[in-house]
Simulated scan of single mutants.
Amino acid sequence: MDPFITAWAALRAAVADLADADYARPSGCAGWLVRDLVCHLVIDAQDVLITLVTPAEGEATVDAAGYWDLLSEPPSGDDPLDALIPRLAAAYGDPRLLAFHLDDVGSAAGRAAALADPAALVTTQDKVLTVGDYLSAYVLEWTLHHLDLIAHLPAAPRPPAETLAVARAALETIAGAAFPASFTDTDALLVGTGRRAPTAEQTTALGEFAGRLPLVLG
């Protein structure tokens, strides 16, 4: 629970620190501006709230790693929801309204997570998992999107070291392989998910693992 709360609080604080002009800058998500990413975070927060009040019966079908699907290629942007995001973000007009909406819904999602029973079962995307595993999966989501948010904002606050480490470990579990010790946690996350191309030295260090990258999460 703690890494989720830490990662989410840090990401929301980074958004709160944005200048209005920053919303028009590119993000680390291909084809999305910072404002589009922030709008996506609003929807993510809504998903957290919905999932936490959608109980399931029986047994868990996946754990935190199993929550993620590995896609064969990156999203094309043709998905209706993906295509909606830039239009919805632009409709806010004033970026402060978008920031306010994220703070409002995001704060509620954080409170709901803190109050939830980690052992309770919930369902989302036709999967059943414990609240603890669901929130653990979102540490990877929040950390990657924090890196996306600051991709072209070098002065912006970075994700906390502890959540970078947790996110790296999660990605390695999903991959079934560890990144070389020479990789920083940020390198592992960016290179591992295709957000940054590996250097020649990193490709050599990766060995056969390089042929399995990027890991496209869906």
Rank of each mutant, 00 (worst) to 15 (best):
T6Y: 08
A7K: 01
A10L: 03
R12D: 07
V15N: 12
L18Y: 05
P26E: 05
S27V: 12
G28A: 00
R35P: 05
R35W: 04
L37D: 01
H40W: 00
L49T: 01
T54N: 10
A56K: 06
T61P: 07
A64K: 15
Y67I: 00
S76Q: 12
L81V: 09
A83E: 10
L84D: 07
A89P: 06
A90M: 08
A90W: 03
Y92P: 05
D94R: 15
L97A: 10
L98G: 04
A99G: 11
F100L: 11
S107R: 12
A112Q: 10
A112M: 15
P118S: 05
A119V: 06
A119N: 10
A120F: 06
Q125W: 07
D126P: 01
T130R: 09
T130F: 07
L135Y: 11
L135Q: 03
A137C: 02
Y138P: 00
E141A: 07
T143F: 01
T143Q: 03
L147H: 08
I150T: 14
A151T: 12
P157Q: 07
E162D: 15
A165G: 04
A170W: 01
A181V: 04
S182H: 02
D187F: 10
A188C: 01
L190D: 00
L190I: 05
L190A: 05
R195Y: 07
R196C: 09
A197Y: 04
A200P: 03
A200M: 11
T204G: 10
A205T: 11
G207N: 11
F209S: 14
A210N: 08
G211K: 14
R212P: 02
P214F: 12
L217A: 08
L217N: 11
